[in-house]
């Protein structure tokens, strides 16, 4: 099948989210809170970059150009994926919100009529169980202490509403085409329910707001994006023909 414009946009959004989160997670290499967490977290970073690569490869043969060579306004990443999160509380909360969303997004694609996309989704989904388990067990553990609750609650309250943007793609025609098996609105509801339930266990009542606050899907970048993009393109800027 020839994927529609909407289908390609959906895949590009997802790939850009994964690229940004993978790059952001990798910032913690060697400076994670303790050795074991450092290894686990940055291994997840690698997985997310692998997902980005797999998704870009569905759209182009020149992955590096698509990943690194576009104008900022051509990226479609959700702002929550772009945030640098250079404090551990934010990095951990974003990890959990992101992977909860990712699990739902991949599930909606595993039976896609775009066969290659469906296969990518099945492979990625297998990794997601581990990501979620990792994020949730550490988060729950930390939220069970007064100190953890005090530090994490404000971060959860401020970051969670941004997660809605993960589902801000237009899915017109995609359900009819069999490209997507769960509408974006339903995916968003599933995610919101899961997030509310998770934090409700710790008496944190998250306010998701009336509508999606951010506008990454429409080409407007968050303040953090430029820094992130400079970091991820540092090598290619020095040597455009670098091989890796």
């Amino acid at each position: 099948m020839v994927p529609s414009e909407e289908a390609r946009k959906l895949v590009l959004s997802f790939a850009d989210d994964e690229l940004c989160v993978g790059q952001n997670h990798s910032w913690w290499i060697a400076i994670g809170p303790f050795l074991e967490e450092d290894l686990a977290f940055t291994s997840i970073a690698q997985d997310e970059l692998g997902h980005a690569r797999a998704l870009y490869s569905l759209l182009t043969d020149d992955i590096d150009h698509l990943a690194y060579g576009r104008n900022h306004s051509e990226y479609r990443s959700a702002h929550i994926a772009e945030f640098l999160c250079h404090d551990w509380s934010s990095a951990l909360v974003r990890h959990v919100l992101h992977d909860m969303a990712e699990q739902i997004r991949w599930s909606a694609l595993t039976n896609s009529s775009w066969t290659a996309l469906g296969e990518t989704a099945q492979r990625a989904l297998a990794e997601e169980n581990f990501h979620i388990q990792h994020g949730l067990s550490l988060l729950r553990r930390l939220l069970s202490s007064d100190e953890g609750q005090k530090r994490l609650e404000p971060i959860v309250l401020s970051l969670a509403p941004y997660g809605r943007e993960y589902f801000a793609d237009c899915d017109e025609g995609l359900i009819d085409d069999g490209l997507l098996t769960i509408s974006m609105a339903d995916q968003e509801r599933m995610w919101v329910d899961q997030v509310l339930e998770t934090f409700d266990d710790f008496n944190i009542s998250v306010d998701m707001g009336e509508e999606t606050q951010s506008s990454g899907r429409s080409g407007i970048r968050s303040d953090d994006f430029a820094t992130l993009h400079d970091e991820m393109t540092a090598v290619i800027q020095i040597d455009p023909n670098a091989q890796w």
């Binding site: 290894l39 686990a40 553990r141």
Partner: peptide, 20 residues
């Protein structure tokens, strides 16, 4: 060996550190 706060995390970290 791994250091972990509880059994569940120990399994997670052990898998990442030695079985990935």
């Amino acid at each position: 060996s791994v250091d972990a706060p509880d059994d569940e995390m120990a399994l997670t970290y052990a898998r990442e550190a030695y079985g990935r």
